[in-house]
Design a protein around this nucleic acid. Structure first.
Lengths: 159, 159
DNA sequence: CGCTTGCTTGGAGTGCACTCCAGGTCTCTA
DNA sequence: TAGAGACCTGGAGTGCACTCCAAGCAAGCG
């Protein structure tokens, strides 16, 4: 039986940069406190998703105001940038949670972190190769259809 | 709200070729009838998945024996190869079903098929760019950990 | 003949990653 | 001080792509 994994998540419906991440307003300098809706703007993640990430341990403890509202810092935004990139390349959420745990545990987990990222890098490289090989098939098929179309057009001109 | 799509499915636990497809026994020449379990061997898809593909209209009508068992042809296997490649690159099953419908409708759907594949090719190219940009981040992080590790090793030698 | 193995079906179940809901609190503006 | 709007929570719901189940049929073997 094939063991399947679900993977890349591709945000749509907004301008994207070359990495496919949404391009929101740039973070202002000189601030270190952001509401959840500001973070939604910056990261393109939904507020639901941000809260869910925190619940499952994918966020390194977010500050709160005295009334319990979240205040994200620049560090949090940096972390979310990394998480978004890893998600985009199909790293399962469970693996990212593991990585977040290792980060919380301190510098003695450097080797394990390195290992985790190296394994993922291999995965990404493999996927790039897969995609490229499919690109060849796609090119071939598209050429066939384009040829057929051009032949039909010539036919039409003549007839 | 981010609109997400679920995507590439990556078979594991068996040798893979550069396209990430499972490498099963090669199809024998001179045959044009295969049982479902032979197709499982050749494609790496599960029997469940093959039956499910047929149910949802992703297969171009599979032959049956007089007792109702499926007999797949070489054409079916070729089609499954294409489908596997498209799945691997994250084409949603619904889009592939659409493509299968167009194929069933005949040559007058060439333009729409070309369009569909061209759009998907753009998607694949974008994803390759995404992956490459993440590879840079990964390289950077891994280098940091590797530097730390080497520094610790030198420390250990000296002390 | 009974047993095993492989196949059939419709429909239910699974896992992942969100996504939403109801009901409540807090803050801000008029 | 009233109302709008942003935020909070736990838990339920959603969509996708499988994945499995139960019950039954058919072929081959000792």
């Amino acid at each position: 039986m094939p063991v399947m994994e679900s993977a890349p998540v591709t945000p749509r419906a907004r301008p994207r940069n070359c990495a496919g991440l949404r391009v929101g307003p740039r973070r202002p300098d000189g601030r270190d406190q952001y509401t959840i809706s500001e973070v939604v703007e910056f990261t393109g993640l939904s507020a639901h998703t941000l809260r869910w990430y925190e619940r499952i341990g994918l966020m390194p403890h977010v500050d709160r105001t005295h009334t319990g509202q979240r205040r994200f810092t620049n560090r949090d935004l940096d972390w979310l940038d990394l998480v978004s990139k890893l998600r985009l390349t199909g790293m399962p959420v469970a693996d990212m949670v593991r990585y977040a745990e290792l980060v919380r545990e301190g510098p003695q987990t450097f080797p394990e972190r390195e290992e985790l990222l190296t394994a993922h890098r291999e995965d990404v490289r493999r996927r790039i190769d897969e995609l490229r090989s499919t690109l060849d098939v796609l090119d071939y098929k598209i050429d066939l259809y384009a040829d057929a179309r051009r032949a039909a057009e010539r036919e039409h001109e003549r007839g």
